[in-house]
Amino acid sequence: MSDTLHKSTVTIAPKKLHQLGLPILKRYTLAITLVLLVCVSQYLYSGFLTPSNIVNIFAQNAPLGIIAVGMTLVMITGGFDLSVGSVFAIGATLYTSLVVGGMGLLEAFLLTTLVGVAAGSLNGALVTRLDVNPFVATLGTMSVFTGAALIYSNSQPYMTSSASFTLLGRGSLAGLPYSIWILAAFMLAGQLILSLSVYGRQIYAVGGNTEAARLAGLRVAVVRGSTYAICSGCAAVAGMIMASRLDLGQADMGRNMALDSIAVVVIGGTSLSGGRGAVWQTAIGLMLVAVLTNLLDSLAVSANYQLLIKGTIVVAAVALDAISRRHT
């Protein structure tokens, strides 16, 4: 019997060696694209590669990146979360209102995060317990959460000018703004969870083949559902950072956050059908989008054209993913 089994592996091995070059190239296509884009940016706009501009790029996009980390987890399980923009707004509004109301920064931060996680748990329960399609479930809760934030805030923005409030968004440590440190921490944690933890393996398994995961004895509903909770938690934190940057929390913030974060994840190469992806890929996706936005801004390309260009890139990224899959 070892004979026959041996045979099958022997015939596979040479093929693998032969094809080794291509996947490596494919795997780093995105990184190479990023390097090229950076070079082009520097060429077109000489102020690009200055420390202040780079710090600015990251600080500006930190909230988006934090949401994208959570979105990556959700999407690897084969899910989708359209409600992150609303939770982002809830995070900003609730946090600001609590601080304005006199609560301590830390308490307000923790409570708001908790509310975010609760909102995500609702999404998770809808998707896993009631079997509502993630697209529909989160489309619905997007409206519900925005509505709740508008009612809570009476459609008015909360504003504060206390110096301590701006700490999260504008304070800095070792020369870098807190928001960048938080982004880095979320990215690192997300990547470590996915690549080194049992929970991470389970996320890939559930996304790669739900039935297989169920038959292997995984608690599929818990794994899938929890990613929504994490994702909304990320969105709430992102909202607080934004509020702290702007000194204000308003219920209609973050309108584009859902689409932007999904775009970042997808451009990074995480599969829409689940089972494939990584936070480091999302990080590259984020940098691509951020650099591109910065370049277009500095070239004074109008926001309307920017929309058009970014949309095209998202569709192209998904199409590329589909094409590369067809050939494997």
Partner: peptide
């Protein structure tokens, strides 16, 4: 219908 996850390694 075999319950393997195609994207994961044999080991996983």
């Amino acid at each position: 219908e075999l319950s393997i996850v195609p994207e994961m390694t044999a080991l996983d």
